[in-house]
């Protein structure tokens, strides 16, 4: 109640800021990048499978395209791990782990699935990675007190992701 009044006053008058910043003034955390990265891994596996099942001959062009898909899969699996690591390391506090005891196990699972997504071309693994990252996102937004919804990504591979309802 009082907060809402201050928030309105702030919009009108703009209170001065006092920074409680970390390494660099930032405070910007969002699991969305990790989710996009996990979706990209799935998409690259799909594209690779399409290419192999397609009629194209195994010429240089074929190998070039396949290599590019694999490269992007590698990069995004690693990016996914990195984004989750930053949130886990910098944003998540002991209180959050006490409240969500599954967090360390979930974090470890994402690290392992991220590596497995690089080592293999298993769509199941990539889906599992997305599932774990979605759960991580769900907890993240819950900690922030922001509700979430599960929706199909409006682009291929059209898998479900957790979005904050802002």
């Amino acid at each position: 109640m009082l907060y809402q009044i201050l928030e309105k006053l702030d919009r009108v008058f703009g209170f001065k800021h006092a920074k409680a910043h970390c390494d660099i003034p930032c405070g910007i955390y969002d699991p969305h990048l990790a989710q996009i990265a996990a979706l990209t891994v799935i998409r690259m596996i799909d594209l690779s499978n399409d290419l192999i099942k397609g009629g194209q001959k195994e010429n240089l062009e074929f190998h070039n395209t396949l290599t590019r898909y694999i490269l992007v899969k590698e990069e995004h699996a690693e990016l996914c791990k990195r984004e989750v690591r930053v949130i886990f390391g910098d944003f998540i506090k002991k209180e959050h782990v006490d409240k969500y005891p599954e967090l360390p196990t979930l974090m470890h699972k994402i690290m392992q699935l991220g590596s497995k997504a690089r080592q293999t071309t298993s769509r199941e693994t990539a889906l599992e990675l997305l599932g774990a990252v979605n759960r991580f996102a769900e907890i993240f937004w819950e900690i922030k007190g922001i509700p979430t919804k599960k929706v199909k990504a409006p682009y291929k591979p059209e898998e479900e992701i957790i979005y904050p309802v802002l």
Binding site: L6, D10, F15, K16, H17, A18, K19, A20, H21, C22, P25, C26, G27, F91, K93, E95, H96
Partner: peptide, 13 residues
């Protein structure tokens, strides 16, 4: 006294 808005999370929670 003066009112400030806190920016950043270094004092979380």
């Amino acid at each position: 006294f003066q009112i400030f808005k806190v920016r950043g999370a270094s004092l979380a929670p």
